[in-house]
Amino acid sequence: MVEQLLTQPRTTTDPMLPNLFRIHRVLKESYDTFTVELVSLEGYQTFPFAPGQFNMLYVFGVGEIPISISGDPLHPETLVHTTRAVGTVTKAMRELKPGDVIGVRGPFGSAWPVKEARGADVVFVAGGIGLAPLRSSLYHILSQREKYGKIVLLYGCRSPEDILFRKELEKWRARFDLEIFVTVDYANSRWHGNVGVVTKLIPKAPFDPLNTVAMVCGPEVMMRFTAIELVKRGVNPENVYLSMERNMKCAVGFCGHCQFGPTFICKNGPVYPYSQIQSWLSMWEV
């Protein structure tokens, strides 16, 4: 074996070799979601990324999975990922402690159109954990608030217990330059908000459909009907962006798993304009 100490920037260009990061902390977000904050172990001070991009996170001996970056692109010294503990890797990741070492490859894929959206109203539509990949974009846009028109976040969850980043949402809700509407599928007796699917919020949301860029992330079926609803309201399909998910093993176009029609989600996605994938979304088992 050719041994290589990864304590300095690598000379090799093997895209399958991970960078080593240390867990800074693991935050519990809800009963089944958590956020990991990572700092580089290899002397890199920052890890620049564009909002919407993802990393491959590797838990030693367990496995590697794609997770979107949920942190602030203005603070790339800490890599932040939020995910739900549902599989072998995410469950192992949740148990990691500060100081534990984790492998990172990335950042990969396309980004939210934060530049293209300048001057327009921006509508974020999130479903469940789908708020995580949108948060990076929200951070970016709020940091340059004056460059955008109205900003609206429509957020749908299964239940009030599933609401992600609750404290941050409350803080944002207190701002006068950002409107947030939350709806849940199943309410408990303490819930006084909207009940129903997130698409029901679209007709009455305060934005100008003729001058709007929409960024949508959630389960595929939710994104499909959100896009239909946005277009129905008058938003140009080219201005509606969705973040797609498929099985992914390599993130660099070699493994073939993430094909979606003629595209690879790792390279052409995960963020696509709706106009580009509209016909594929309505087909079964693509």
Binding site: M1, V2, Q4
Partner: peptide, 19 residues
């Protein structure tokens, strides 16, 4: 084999494969 990670003292050394 793409690579091998060896754990020592709580950290890892990653070794890539032979030519």
């Amino acid at each position: 084999e793409l690579w091998k990670a060896l754990r020592t003292n709580g950290t890892y050394r990653v070794a890539s494969a032979d030519p």
